[in-house]
Nucleic acid binder design. Structure first.
Lengths: 186, 186
DNA sequence: CGTTGCTATGCAACGAGGTGCATAGGAGGA
DNA sequence: TCCTCCTATGCACCTCGTTGCATAGCAACG
């Protein structure tokens, strides 16, 4: 029930079309909230009919026209209200953890390549995050970037991503060492 | 599409009823894969009609009778096959991260109690994990517990949970320090 | 006896989310 | 010219998951 709010935040940071939002959900926002373009278009329709966002037709040359969405007053109110109500769920779905526990009843060695693949994904993301951090949050003092609060809050969320990836890489190394123990007949 | 597999893993570790599975999904397995009892009963029905699990009526005294499920041959095969196919999604849904980025357009101070509440939840979970680790994976050598592989794999997953909670607590402290910076007008 | 609470199973309805497909304009290459 | 790819929007269908409710046995308490 919070995709609306993720979209509101993204549109506050910068107005854009459904397509552009979908691209943002493949990076930045997408690192802690995933959404497909179908979902985004559907929710944007609802938000528009609820008056949360305004739409503006934008003609483009060299590419199809688009609809640019921006946050309307009721949308800002809804976002503000959401910030004040508690968030509980944080539902978790770690396929890999289930697989690791399940490996005891199959072939533990078969998991090694899978775990290594996940490790690679996480090192790639970490590299990507660190590059983004150096680019957007280097020592230069804000310059023409976003406001201080916006900027610092984006930065602390990014640091969370960095911490998460580092933790995962260290844990996957632990998992690999454990799996290796079975091969060498520990 | 992996609740079936999570149930298979849990039933491999120990056969049980839908109700008992629901309890397990409130702890242990539930720490990395959530499921409600309605979902579990529905999926168990399907797994039974697919021949993945066997059912046995168990009469109980002092409490209602139950159906005890255990993994059948096709279920073991399905679990083994799943272990060999790659897992990609790992879809993420971090309300709190969205809220933190959104706080720039509302009242950042309003988030402090929310973040502190989350921090408390994570310290509680960490304490709980560490207690479980000391209980189930203390220095005593396996004793009458599960097999070595099963035991070690359960342990490495638990260590993952511990690492995750520690990372979250450290990050939430970072978030709180950042939010405090706005109050003191850094 | 009625109430509360735990064990145990289940249905109905709804909304969220994913898969697959359709459409359409334009760019660039074979 | 056809093919492929990128931008851009959208529908239809189906599954997953949540919410709310219903049933029923038994225990403990007042």
């Amino acid at each position: 029930m919070a995709l609306e709010h993720a979209i509101l935040v993204s549109l506050q940071e910068k107005p854009g079309s459904g397509y552009e939002l979908a691209r943002r959900f493949e990076r930045s926002i997408g690192y802690f909230w995933t959404a497909s373009h179908q979902q985004i278009y559907r929710v944007l329709k609802r938000m528009e009919s609820d008056g949360w966002v305004d739409v503006r037709d934008v003609q483009q040359y060299g590419r199809p026209d688009k609809k640019e969405y921006s946050v309307a007053e009721p949308g800002r109110d809804a976002l503000c209200a959401w910030l004040h109500e508690p968030t509980e769920p944080e539902s978790v779905r770690h396929d890999l953890a289930v697989k690791i526990r399940g490996a005891a009843y199959g072939d533990p060695a078969a998991l090694i390549s899978e775990v290594e693949r996940h490790r690679q994904t996480h090192t790639d993301r970490l590299t990507h995050y660190l590059a983004g951090e150096a680019r957007d949050f280097g020592e230069h003092p804000a310059a023409d970037g976003p406001l201080d609060a916006e900027r610092e809050l984006q930065h602390v969320v990014l640091r969370g991503g960095v911490a998460y990836e580092r933790m995962m890489i260290a844990w996957l190394d632990d998992v690999l060492a454990t799996l290796a123990g079975f091969n060498t007949g520990h």
